[in-house]
């Protein structure tokens, strides 16, 4: 439980926890704005954009991937508007068609392209590659203080840490306008607050987290973390400040517990192999929501 843990388990656990918390943070506002499915939608729509960016640049890097994801999101918005106008279908149906089609298109692109040399494939898109994010330079807990060893950390870790920090700082700075415009957009506008830009900002923050987390943990965790921790947290309290704190705690618990259960759970049950950490983390977040729905203090009758 010393060197081996620091080398093999600590980095993926921390990366998973950071990704989960980064997604849960904007998820709170998406949930209260009744836009929870936007998180789901974003993580589907961006896949073809990320793949195209990867095919063009030949590497898994945040900058090009963000650009590709933004392009895909833009295309999705245009497609939805077009289908609504010319297809005469209701907005929900138009969105559903575009999201699933674009995700499926992304999967096909992935399959057709020769991405075997790097770990970008269909499974990776869904589950990420948490288990492979090991810290080879680590020799024990002491490595956490060793600059040379720290330089060998998987790059996903600092990337997720920065993403989480950026979103957390923005949320803290813009807390009042966010809360005001989420609760009462008309009143917020009468005060001169740019509610349209604030709504767009929430969506962009969610997109940033989705794309940054996608490579490390896959879209299953991203989708689950946008909704499950905030929804469970809403049942724990009637104050937004505490709801956000609870959602971060639930996201953290899902990541740590899910990672441990994925690695050791099957062994405890007598099964020979471990299961997907991403799948287990998402499952744990769903279980937390189920428990909150039954036992939490502020659930609805």
């Amino acid at each position: 439980m010393g060197a081996e843990f620091v080398m093999l388990s600590l980095p993926p656990m921390v990366i998973g926890a950071l990704a989960a918390m980064a997604c849960a943070l904007p998820g709170n506002f998406l949930l209260l704005r009744r836009e929870a499915l936007i998180g789901d939608a974003i993580s589907h729509v961006v896949l073809p954009g990320i793949v195209v960016a990867f095919l063009l640049t030949g590497m898994v890097a945040t900058g090009p991937m963000m650009l590709g994801a933004a392009g895909a999101a833009l295309l999705a918005a245009v497609l939805i508007a077009t289908i609504r106008r010319f297809g005469g279908v209701e907005p929900g149906a138009a969105m559903g068609v575009v999201f699933t089609t674009m995700f499926a298109g992304g999967v096909l692109l992935l399959e057709q392209s020769n991405t075997a040399s790097v770990h970008l494939d269909v499974e990776h898109a869904l589950y990420g590659n948490l288990e492979s994010l090991i810290w080879i330079d680590a020799v024990g807990w002491g490595s956490l203080l060793d600059p040379r060893a720290l330089a060998g950390l998987p790059p996903e870790l600092p990337r997720m840490a920065v993403t989480f920090a950026v979103v957390a700082v923005l949320t803290a700075l813009l807390w009042r306008p966010l809360k005001l415009s989420t609760f009462d957009a008309g009143f917020a506008q009468s005060l001169g607050l740019p509610t349209g830009a604030i709504g767009l900002g929430v969506t962009l923050a969610a997109a940033l987290c989705a794309v940054a987390a996608f490579d490390a943990v896959g879209s299953i965790i991203v989708i689950a973390m946008f909704i499950c921790p905030p929804a469970a947290a809403r049942l724990m309290t009637n104050r937004l400040e505490r709801q956000v704190a609870w959602s971060l705690a639930f996201a953290l618990a899902s990541a740590v517990l899910g990672y441990v259960l994925a690695g050791y759970g099957p062994l405890w049950l007598g099964a020979p192999a471990s299961v997907s950490a991403a799948g287990m983390i998402a499952t744990v977040s769903g279980m937390i929501l189920a428990l909150a729905a039954v036992f939490a203090p502020h659930r609805k009758a």
Partner: peptide
Amino acid sequence: AYVPQRASVDWDFPTRVIDVVLMGMYR
């Protein structure tokens, strides 16, 4: 000052009465 229609907001929003009044002091 503006008082919107009561039905225009979601009253299930997680906040207290005093917090809503404090929103009036945003500016």
